[in-house]
């Protein structure tokens, strides 16, 4: 493709030691980032996600090979030129001191302003646009120290955006956030990639969100070369499964989420549909049951039925002729344990 903003060629990443041999984290990495795409880099802990991110962002030199951004080698670009092409958001919480969110975003104009950092009209417009783009207008006046982690990360993304780069690189931007905040950040990033045509590369541990939002996924694993492709393709090819395979946990093709293996409690029958059946199944799986939902005919199993009343829901369990009713899943589960 011609419109790749970034290309790596046979990249070897890791840490050079002056006297010992280098510590190699990843070898022969050849990937590319097309314009306007959201790319998620995922992989188990310690596989070298941060090292790859840092190498691409020019914070670290590659041991071999090169990273080409807009046709130029990242490590040979002057910092100012690189800053106009690429901006970063890091995991670490910044302590910017006594500064408004607006002031923090304004720092993003650094590569464009004069020696004193004086903001021109265009700079001010870029800052305001960046703040609006991430939906942080109401945060602008607030002191950075008073922001929550999620708000702060939004402001940091606005800062990266104010730098007007073609590529934004984020190292685990959602690491410290709760689920709604993580979803929000991913939604913002996704919209940015769509509407501004900027490319976004981020590393994350959040597989589910990555699967749902990324255009392309880069999958790093310990013993295999980096694989990339559309999230769905990677799921179907089983790449996800063998990357994250380990004891007691399994990636489920069907749901795109992880399943935790517990003790094996045998099979159980569940009759019912809809939301109550879904969560009942989850509860039973948590207890280690292999749930057979709505089977044609079966006997000799414990059977759970969901009975929907006018205002309340009850669970009925039949086993060996005994029938019991429960008012909550908690009651049902505690009874199953006995």
């Amino acid at each position: 493709m011609n419109d790749n903003i970034l290309v790596t060629q046979n990249l070897t990443i890791g840490y050079a030691h002056p006297r010992r041999s280098s510590h190699i984290v990843g070898e022969n990495i050849s990937v590319s980032i097309p314009t306007g795409e959201l790319i998620c880099l995922i992989g188990p802990n310690g596989v070298g996600k941060s090292t790859l991110i840092r190498t691409i962002a020019g914070l670290q030199t590659p041991l071999k090979g090169q990273v080409k951004l807009a046709g130029k080698e990242v490590n040979k670009l002057k910092p100012r030129e690189l800053a106009k092409l690429l901006s970063i958001v890091l995991t670490t919480r910044v302590n910017a001191g006594n500064m408004t969110a607006y002031g923090l975003v304004a720092l993003g104009r650094y590569p464009y302003t004069d020696w004193a950092g004086k903001l021109t009209r265009h700079d001010e417009e870029a800052i305001r646009w960046a703040i609006k783009s991430v939906g942080a207008v109401e945060l602008a006046q607030r002191n950075v120290n008073e922001l929550s982690d999620g708000e702060r990360q939004k402001v940091m993304i606005a800062r990266a955006l104010a730098q007007e780069p073609t590529l934004i690189v984020l190292d685990e931007p959602t690491a410290f956030l709760d689920l709604p905040r993580r979803v929000e950040i991913m939604r913002i990033l996704r919209n940015l990639a769509r509407t501004t045509g900027k490319s976004i590369l981020l590393s994350t541990h959040d597989l589910d969100l990555a699967l749902r939002s990324a255009d392309t996924i880069w999958l790093m694993s310990y013993d295999k070369p980096l694989r990339c492709g559309a999230p769905e393709d990677l799921v179907l090819s089983g790449a996800f499964q063998d990357t994250f395979q380990s004891e007691g946990i399994e990636f489920d093709h069907q749901t795109g989420s992880f399943r935790i293996h517990n003790l094996n409690s045998g099979e159980i029958v569940l009759n019912g549909n809809g939301i109550h059946a879904f969560w009942t199944k989850r509860a039973l799986e948590r207890e280690g049951y292999n749930v057979l939902q709505n089977p044609q005919s079966i006997s000799g199993h414990k059977m759970i039925e969901i009975i929907k009343g006018d205002s309340e829901v009850k669970w009925k369990m039949t086993y060996n002729g005994d029938t019991n009713h429960y008012n909550s899943l908690r009651e049902l589960i505690s009874n199953l344990r006995q």
Binding site: A57, G58, L59, K78, P79, R80, E81, L82, A83, K84, L86, S87, I88, L90, T92, V94, A96, G97, M99, L104, L107, G108, Y110, P111, Q163
Partner: peptide, 12 residues
């Protein structure tokens, strides 16, 4: 103020 890594990424 943002640390050396951010400073570098902003063109310093």
């Amino acid at each position: 103020l943002l640390g050396e890594e951010y400073a570098r990424s902003m063109g310093l």
